[in-house]
Design a protein around this nucleic acid. Structure first.
Lengths: 228, 228
DNA sequence: GTTCTGAACTCTGTATACAGCATACTTGAT
DNA sequence: ATCAAGTATGCTGTATACAGAGTTCAGAAC
């Protein structure tokens, strides 16, 4: 893009700390995509991004390949990577799979989760409610994700959690845009309340129903603003 | 600069054709892992493999990162990549997810698949039967995979197909080892027969049942020979 | 004015070079 | 003989160099 990448304050210097550089770059890139800095369909300019992150093209390209396998970017033969663009059908498909996974996980969670583990989810939920009251959308959003991830984790199935996380990551960018109005937001909060209640009651059917409904609503919130 | 013609001690002549080198390396690596050339837990020596494939370390490393995101190898901080080792629980978890996906896909397929598409699956099945008769395990194995992939594809959900393929790939190596005896093999063939019948009858419940049973059997066939 | 062509520039794809860490090996002392 | 310490070696992680494909823009021809 023609945006002057390093324009901001002089200290735009990004210090990559001594965790794996690979992971650091990966997180940076994911953020850039999710937050819309790299809009869907745009090419990833290795030289520019590398300079911006203060690393050479080599580890950057490796991270990009990783993202490609994750499905966040697409590899185009002599043109490098472009940020993957999801059409309506694709998003709907992903949500359908997500529904399947969450419902299954929820049912399993009702069977095997410990009371303590459920209490932790409840704690996250309460925290999220606090964010809702003070209208802190970002924190709310993150806790929301954490709760869904947490419920899936209750099923104690690594593969299930992994697949769920992968799909959730792809949808993050979509959802990030979805700033629902006050009434819809309130609705989502109410759904969450019922979700936790069903979980605490270990009522698998009710939990599955509300999880399914919740995802349908999520779809309703984002489906406009997608092409095709 | 070296020519990419490689004569190797094992006679594994490798000639990379003019598709994307990236994809070519990827396929080679997957094969090496699935076929057990690179046993679980072993490190991937970039220098050696690169020489064997006739490519430098750069594109090879990129392919490895891709595989890491696919979950076939694991990245260990200063030790490179090691072939991922799946324990019994992990395999069981994957099979559980696979069951969920296939059953869902099967049900959906019964609703929306065209007669022609189902006929194509039937054709694959017949072909597989021929392989069974002449005891061609490898061809049987490949058609087997293709049939399951095909049934999932009938659901017309890209995300579902993708996730399924990913899990299937991971299990390939496990299943590759599983050389079941004649009676079990006959059993598996019978299950497939019933599977196709249920699909043609568009009997979602029966199809789900048999798909579930089939995967349970698959687990029975491979569960010994796994640690932990 | 339009279009074709070619040259310069940009960016990707691949190879090579280099530094740092980890492990194995050797050598010397107890 | 055992153990410790230093050294050598191998491999990974990162940067840089180079070649080729693609794109853009300008200039010439019509």
């Amino acid at each position: 893009m023609e945006r002057s990448g390093i324009s901001d304050t002089q200290g735009m210097e990004v210090r990559i700390e001594r965790q794996s550089l690979h992971d650091a770059i990966l997180n940076r890139l994911r953020d850039m995509i999710i937050e819309g800095h790299l809009p869907p369909g745009s090419r990833l300019n290795e030289g520019q991004i590398g300079a911006q992150l203060g690393v050479s093209r080599t580890p950057l390209r490796e991270a990009i390949k990783f993202l490609a396998s994750e499905g966040l970017v697409e590899l185009v033969p002599t043109r490098g990577a472009v940020v993957k663009k999801f059409g309506a059908k694709e998003v709907l498909d992903m949500i359908e799979v997500l529904r399947m996974l969450e419902q299954h996980a929820g049912a399993r969670a009702c069977e095997i989760a410990s009371d303590e583990a459920i209490a932790e989810i409840r704690a996250l939920h309460d925290e999220m409610l606090a964010c809702y009251r003070r209208q802190d959308r970002l924190a709310y959003y993150k806790l929301n994700q954490a709760i869904h991830t947490g419920i899936v984790a209750l099923a104690d199935n690594g593969s299930l959690s992994e697949v769920h996380a992968r799909l959730q990551t792809r949808l993050k960018r979509i959802r990030f845009v979805g700033h629902e109005g006050p009434e819809k937001w309130a609705n989502a909060v109410a759904e969450h309340e019922e979700m936790i209640a069903a979980l605490e009651a270990r009522d698998a059917d009710r939990l599955a129903a509300i999880l399914g409904k919740h995802l349908t609503q999520a779809w309703e919130r984002v489906k406009d603003g997608l092409d095709a």
